[in-house]
């Protein structure tokens, strides 16, 4: 560096150089002009973008394919499904498959059961979750942190540990057995799921973000804890509550094991059980009618998809935070 004798050193006057002068800068190491490097960079960027899109679109196709296949199979004739040459669009569109399925598969009954169970277990969960999250987030009492720690620890335990004993517990409540009524079956499917440690945790985090000043202001105005909870906190935490509701609903829609265990009649079971236990067998040929089967599958999948389309934002946000199905 020759900073010392700046007075003697002469610099290139950059101001006098114009773009029109066509200066060509070249980097010695690469032996390429800047233009050439720019060009190769641009080309490689385009290639990279194209490759990325190709990769993503290919995988997106794979992800979508089962849905596509489900829909077109539900519209095919059985002969076409089992033909040696598979067709990617039905030659004759068989809407009658759906009519047949709604005659054979007791869709409305399963649907009714599922919705009843979903509504009541969601309501119960919301109530207990809101109360508990309020206590954990806002109130202070001895042993609060210890109880919360125990709650968090229970999240580590696999649900299968509980199923065995819960089955026995529910049986001792008289909700199982040969003389099980519809109400008994509903209770057995609803009550054990009235609490979810994970949702309590989720809502508590949300409640904690609500500033303390609001609470003190409400106190000055003479509000009780109870009315503060329902008038201020619950409306402010509405997005989380909606997420919880939808996830819980999806969980009921997907639940298979427990309803299967605690009901003794297929009339009382939920949609997943109905779907897997219905035979859809062609009596003459003795083979499974895939067309009917897939039509039933579409009927089960569509409501969830509608829910997803309308509540996409809440579902994806809720899952991103929650990460637990059901």
């Amino acid at each position: 560096m020759a900073q010392q004798n700046t007075s003697t050193k002469t610099y290139i006057d950059f101001k006098s150089v114009r773009v029109n002068d066509n200066i060509v800068l070249s980097l010695e190491e690469a032996g390429k002009t800047v233009d050439a490097i720019k060009r190769t960079e641009k080309v490689s960027r385009i290639i990279m973008t194209v490759l990325t899109y190709a990769f993503i679109l290919f995988l997106a196709l794979i992800v979508v394919f089962p849905f596509y296949w489900m829909i077109i199979t539900s519209l095919k004739q059985n002969d076409e499904i089992r033909a040696t040459t598979q067709t990617f669009f039905p030659t004759i569109v068989m809407w009658s498959n759906y009519i047949h399925v709604f005659q054979v598969f007791d869709f409305t009954n399963y649907m009714f059961n599922t919705i009843v169970v979903a509504i009541f277990s969601t309501l119960g969960t919301l109530l207990t979750t809101i109360l508990a999250a309020f206590a954990f987030a806002r109130l202070r009492f001895k042993g609060r942190d210890a109880v919360f720690a125990i709650f968090l620890m229970t999240m580590m335990i696999p649900g299968e540990m509980m199923v065995i004993s819960n089955y026995i517990t529910v049986a001792s409540f008289g909700w199982l057995g040969k003389d099980q009524t519809r109400i008994d079956a509903y209770l057995a499917m609803i009550v054990p799921f009235w609490t979810s440690v994970f949702y309590i945790y989720l809502l508590r985090q949300n409640f904690k973000q609500i500033p303390n000043e609001l609470y003190l202001a409400a106190k000055v105005d003479g509000k009780s804890d109870w009315s503060f909870l329902w008038k201020v906190m619950v409306p402010l935490a509405a997005p989380t509550l909606i997420s919880i509701t939808i996830l819980k609903f999806m969980g009921t829609w997907n639940s298979y094991v427990w309803p299967n265990l605690v009901t003794n009649q297929s009339d009382y079971r939920l949609i997943s059980n109905g779907l897997r236990s219905s035979a859809f067998v062609d009596i003459d040929a003795g083979i499974t009618e895939y067309g009917y089967q897939m039509a039933a599958t579409v009927a089960v999948t569509v409501p969830l998809f509608l829910l997803f389309i309308f509540f996409r934002k809440y579902i994806m946000k809720g899952v991103g935070r929650a990460g637990i199905k059901g």
Binding site: M161, N166, V191, P192
Partner: peptide, 29 residues
Amino acid sequence: SKNNWKGWLYLAPVIILVAIFLIYPLINT
């Protein structure tokens, strides 16, 4: 300050349910 009993009141439903359907089954299993 002291809203001790109130806190437990709010927690009561969850604690009862967790005790019946989570803690007891774990020990029992």
